[in-house]
Design a protein around this nucleic acid. Structure first.
Length: 287
DNA sequence: TATACACCTGG
DNA sequence: CAGGTGTAT
């Protein structure tokens, strides 16, 4: 294993990798996390102030640093949010080391397209199936094969994607999105990292099957838009409970979505996405 | 601008 | 019904 000093910056893998932003990580009995980043199989562990990791094939050091956002000043982010809100301060204390990741954009987009009207375990199963059927084999470890997330080229021509990956009506959307990404050119998606949030969001939403929620997930988890606050039905409920007790609705209209986004932005500004993730994680554990 | 419903599939 | 979206009213 190689090691990197965290330099006093908080990183907790258990919360970070299981909080619903990424779907391909598994925790081994001994606490080691195994997953795939880009074209590499990766093992991660944290002890004290040290991150231990290994990539297969090796040479994935920069990949790991980038994915975990190791150059971010997370202490500063926490301090900023803790000053804004007592409840959030408590959540940060409780889930200290929960971070946002910087994931590959096309994998993030396709993954969250799988999430529409779906549940976590089925989303994970579908994504693993996509990788198994259409992704390149990376390596085999302890009798398990690990595959990269499939390229858009491969997905665009995929036959039988819905049935093989249990995607239902999402399959056709995903295939079309892969085609659209190819049409728009190699760098279209990755270049949205350099665009303002509103612009990136609008471009994403021009894809069929991508609405506000999925666009915001991609913005936050892959495109460096820490101000994006995806509002799913759980976030809607907790936002109504915490911020908007007057908002009496059980459905998610555009207006409701915008009102909740505004509540997050008013409170947490450019770090609304981090706040959302802490509040969401607490809700995830609620029975 | 708002609400209702279909879209697949399985727990 | 589920961690939505598109479309028709």
């Amino acid at each position: 294993m190689q090691t990197i000093s965290l330099d006093g910056q908080p990183l907790d893998l258990d919360t970070t990798l299981s909080c619903g932003q990424a779907f391909r990580w598994r925790r081994r009995e001994d606490g080691l996390w195994q997953g795939v980043i880009g074209d590499r199989f990766v093992e991660l562990g944290v002890k004290g102030d040290t991150l231990s990791y290994r990539t297969f094939p090796d040479g994935g050091d920069e990949l790991v640093r980038d994915y975990l956002r190791l150059s971010d000043d997370v202490k500063y982010i926490y301090a900023y949010l803790q000053n804004r809100d007592r409840r959030l301060a408590a959540q940060i204390q409780r889930f200290y080391g929960l971070r946002l990741l910087r994931q590959p954009p096309n994998e993030t987009l396709i993954s969250f397209m799988c999430s529409a009207a779906n549940n976590i375990s089925r989303i994970s199963n579908s994504i693993e199936a996509l990788a198994r059927h259409y992704g390149k084999l990376i390596c085999e470890r302890d009798g398990v094969c690990y595959y990269a997330f499939p390229s858009c080229e491969r997905l665009a021509e995929a036959d039988d994607i819905s049935r093989l990956c249990s995607l239902g009506f999402r399959g056709e959307n995903i295939k079309n999105a892969a085609r659209a990404i190819l049409e728009r050119g190699e760098d279209w998606l990755i270049d949205l990292r350099g665009q303002p949030y509103d612009e990136a969001r609008e471009q994403l939403m021009s894809l069929n099957g991508v609405g506000a929620k999925i666009a915001d997930c991609v913005c936050l988890f892959a495109l460096d838009k820490d101000e994006a606050a995806p509002v799913d039905t759980h976030v809607r409920q907790l936002a109504q409970r915490l911020f908007l007790p007057g908002l009496n609705t059980k459905s998610m209209t555009d207006g409701v979505y915008r009102a909740i986004v505004k509540a997050f932005r008013d409170r947490y500004d450019g770090l609304a996405g981090w706040a959302q993730q802490f509040l969401y994680y607490e809700d995830l554990l609620r029975p």
